[in-house]
Simulated assay, not measured.
Amino acid sequence: MKLTLISFILIAPFFTACNSKKNVEEVTTEHVVIEGEELYEVIPPPPEFKSDFDNLDDWLTNICENEPPTKPVKNYNFGLFESPDEHTIFFVGLNKYTNENSSSTRVDYEPENMYFVLPKTEYSNLSVEQVKQRLTMQLKEFVNTTKFKSSYLAEADSVTTDFGGKIWPK
């Protein structure tokens, strides 16, 4: 009986620590997206992340003018990380790889400024659905600009979002 009680006392903190770690991991999960039947993952920005840009247009302009990918990208995608305090949009380049047994979608391009924290002044009073609708509208407007059309982004087959579908087909 003493051996069982001592074993429980020694092992219980281990299980508690494992359960605590599991809860932390659930809070900081990766952004996993199903594109058709394919999956790709994007790691969220660190908790202390701050945007270098004042608005979405400045961020998009930076993406267009800087850091083109080093290899061809078929699809550029915008996604959204949501939290109670803020929304962060991200941008990546995706390519699909297929062989005789399987296929996979991989993130082949991550610009240095791949994240942008949406300004609270513009987005804080909106529901998540309204945030997604506004972003989709703003991105569709952006892909119609000369800035976009003269950038490396226009060379891709498509530009999509995780929340609004295709916003630009070639």
Rank of each mutant, 00 (worst) to 15 (best):
L118E: 02
N55Q: 03
E100W: 14
V27P: 06
P169D: 14
E65M: 09
P47H: 05
E48M: 03
I34D: 05
E37P: 04
K120H: 12
F15T: 09
K120R: 15
I34A: 13
E155Q: 13
G164T: 03
E41R: 14
G79E: 04
M1T: 07
I6P: 02
S150P: 00
Y152M: 09
L135Y: 03
Y123E: 07
S51A: 03
F81E: 07
F90E: 13
V143H: 00
E122K: 12
T98F: 01
A17G: 04
G165R: 00
V42E: 06
K149L: 04
F142C: 01
S83C: 12
K149N: 10
S104V: 13
H87Q: 15
E41H: 09
P13C: 00
P119N: 00
N125L: 11
V131E: 04
E26L: 13
Y109F: 12
E129S: 08
K22E: 09
K132R: 01
E35H: 13
K21N: 14
T105D: 10
F163V: 08
A12G: 07
D162K: 06
E30N: 15
T70F: 10
F78H: 03
K166N: 11
T98L: 04
K170V: 12
C18G: 14
P69Q: 04
V107Q: 02
T145P: 08
S150K: 14
P68E: 01
F49V: 01
D85A: 15
I43Y: 06
L60D: 06
E129L: 07
T70D: 09
S124A: 08
I9N: 08
T105Q: 12
V131S: 02
V128M: 03
H31C: 01
D157Q: 11
F8L: 12
L56N: 09
Q130V: 05
K140G: 02
V143K: 04
C64A: 01
E112G: 12
E110F: 07
D52S: 09
H31L: 14
S103W: 12
S7H: 05
Y76P: 09
T16Q: 00
F53V: 10
R106L: 15
E26H: 13
V128G: 02
V27T: 01
N55E: 05
F53L: 11
K132L: 00
S127M: 00
G165F: 06
F91S: 01
F14P: 02
K71A: 02
I34M: 09
F91T: 01
M137G: 11
L39Y: 11
L60H: 09
N19F: 11
V128E: 10
S83I: 12
V143P: 12
N23V: 06
T61W: 08
E100M: 14
V107W: 05
F15W: 01
S83N: 07
D108W: 04
H31A: 10
E38W: 08
N113K: 11
C18I: 15
K21E: 11
E38T: 15
A154K: 03
V27I: 06
T4V: 13
H87K: 15
A12W: 05
Y123V: 05
N101R: 03
N101H: 10
N77V: 15
P119S: 08
V32D: 00
D57K: 13
N23C: 13
S127A: 09
F142S: 00
N101L: 11
E30A: 15
